[in-house]
Amino acid sequence: MAILEVKGLGKDFGGLRVLDDISFSLAEGTVTGLIGPNGAGKSTLVNLIAGSDRPTRGEIYFFSRPLHKLPSWRIARLGLARTFQITRIFKDLTLRENVRLAAWTIGMRGQKLEAEVDRLLALTELADKAAVLSNDLTLPDQKRLQLARALALQPKLLLLDEVMAGLNPVELDKAILLLNRLRQQGITMLVIEHLMRVIMNISDRVIVLHQGQLIADGQPSEVVGLSQVQEAYLGSRYVKSKAAEMEVSGLGGMLNAGNQES
C-alpha cells in the first residue's frame, strides 16, 4: 500500500520554477533515497510534503488523506515527521525537554512519556547529555537530537534531510546502523543524502531530482549507472568522454564500490 502519494507536484518561487510535475509514491515499510545535485529541489520537496511550504501545483496524499492544505503541525500529528538540513532545535530547552515536548504534543503523559523519552535517548545514544541545554550541543548531537525528536512523534513516515552530513566515519557507521534498526521497526523513510555510501547501504529504491524534475527512479544500483544521473552530477562532457570506456570510473565506480559493501 502506498503510504505517500505525490501527484504532479510543482513549486515556483516567483518566476523560478523549483519543482515541476513531480509524481511518485512510497510503499509502506520501504526506504527511499532522494538524491540530486545542490539546488535540485530536494529540501523544497521535503518542505512541501511536511507542510512547511505550500505547493504551487499538485497534490500530496498520506494514507490517501490530502496533505497539501493542512498546516504542518497537523501533518506532524498524523505521523509524518521530519528533520531539517540546517538544524532547527529548541535552544532554550534541554535536550531531554526537546524530545519530551514532541512526545507530549501527540498526547503522551506521565510515566509513559518519561519512559518513551528514555527509550529514544538510549536509542540515539544521547542519554548522557539529557540535561544539557541543547544550544550547547555539538552539531552531530544536534542532528541526533532532531532524529530523536522526530521519532518521539511515533512517525509512520520519516523524512530525513541530510541527517548525516558532517559526521565522521565512525559516527556514520553508527547512524547507518540506527537507520537500519528503524527500518526493521517498519518506519517508512525518505532519505535525502549526499553520501552515496549511506544511500547505497540503506535504500530499497533511489529517486533522482535534477533541476526540479525527477530524472530517475529505481534500484540503487540501476540508478547510479544511468547516464542522465551521472550527467546531472558530473556534466555531459564528462559522461561523453567516459562513454567510450565500458567501465564507468569516477562517481560511478565509487558508487559501485558502495554497493558491494551492502
Partner: peptide, 10 residues
C-alpha cells in the same frame, strides 16, 4: 527558539 521546528513537532 524556532517556530518552524515547533510546528514540525506538532
Amino acid at each position: 527558539s524556532d517556530e518552524v521546528a515547533a510546528q514540525a513537532v506538532g
